[in-house]
């Protein structure tokens, strides 16, 4: 039984099958993401009511919070698919992991910069050593390390395996880092900063937030598949089906 399931998975995850299937999925993801992001932006920018404490500046959270969620989600995806690749030797998992890294780094960057832009009117400074921003910054370092390691190792298969190990080590450490930064922050700053993060959010603000979050997820899905397709073409370049596609 187990063998049959594994066989199915291997077949499903075969590069050729993946290439065909992902080609069909991407347009759906892309269009849905575009619709959701546009709707979420309009809702977030113009329709959601003004926050009585922060005025209109809070509208940045519709970018900031989903981007921060995505940054952590994508790192998780990288670690899990890295583990899958190491344990079951599924090549596609490696491709997904390494295709995810730049997208995750971009979201982390976005979360950091929007957090800082939001911080300027709120805290009066571009940068505050707030626990979330600091954790996000460390996450960015983890992403940069991952990408640097990947580009430093010449052999693509060795690079993928080394990066998988790094991602797993990183993902085990993230909760520890997060906890220590939070603890450090409460010691030094008190709870002055976090008031923005945990207000019981009103439904009219929640809707655009969820729209944006879902849009970001679908956007990630579309882009990661696009990048993975490109990688598959390169790694499988000696196979006949690639030659047939390229002609």
């Amino acid at each position: 039984m187990m063998k049959a399931i594994m066989k199915f998975i291997y077949q499903f995850a075969s590069p050729k099958h993946f290439y065909r299937l992902s080609g069909k999925i991407i347009p759906w993801f892309a269009w849905l993401a575009a619709i959701l992001l546009i709707a979420g932006s309009i809702d977030g920018l113009f329709i959601a009511p003004v926050d009585y404490q922060q005025g209109d500046s809070y509208r940045i959270i519709f970018i900031h919070v989903p981007a921060a969620w995505m940054s952590m989600f994508i790192y998780m995806v990288m670690a899990i698919s890295g583990a899958i690749a190491l344990i079951w030797k599924i090549k596609l998992a490696d491709v997904i992991a390494s295709s995810s890294a730049p997208i995750g780094a971009a979201f982390t960057f976005l979360a950091l910069v929007t957090g800082s832009i939001w911080g300027k009117p709120m805290w009066g400074a571009w940068w505050v050593w707030d626990a979330r921003l600091t954790s996000e910054l460390i996450l960015l370092f983890l992403y940069l390390g991952y990408m640097a390691l990947e580009s430093a190792i010449e052999d693509p298969r060795a690079a993928a395996r080394a990066c998988a190990i790094l991602a797993i080590v990183g993902v085990i450490n993230i909760p520890i880092i997060h906890y220590s930064v939070e603890w450090w922050n409460t010691l030094h700053q008190g709870a002055t900063v976090t008031k923005l993060d945990k207000p019981s959010i009103h439904i009219s603000m929640l809707i655009p937030l969820l729209l944006m979050a879902l849009g970001f997820k679908l956007y990630y899905g579309a882009v990661v598949l696009m990048r993975a397709r490109n990688k598959v073409l390169v790694t499988e370049q000696n196979n006949r089906w690639v030659k047939e596609i390229i002609g």
Binding site: E154, D155, P156, R157, V234, T235, Q237, N238
Partner: peptide, 9 residues
């Protein structure tokens, strides 16, 4: 057994 170095078989 098969072996590749880079993308060269």
């Amino acid at each position: 057994l098969s072996c590749e170095r880079g993308y060269r078989e």
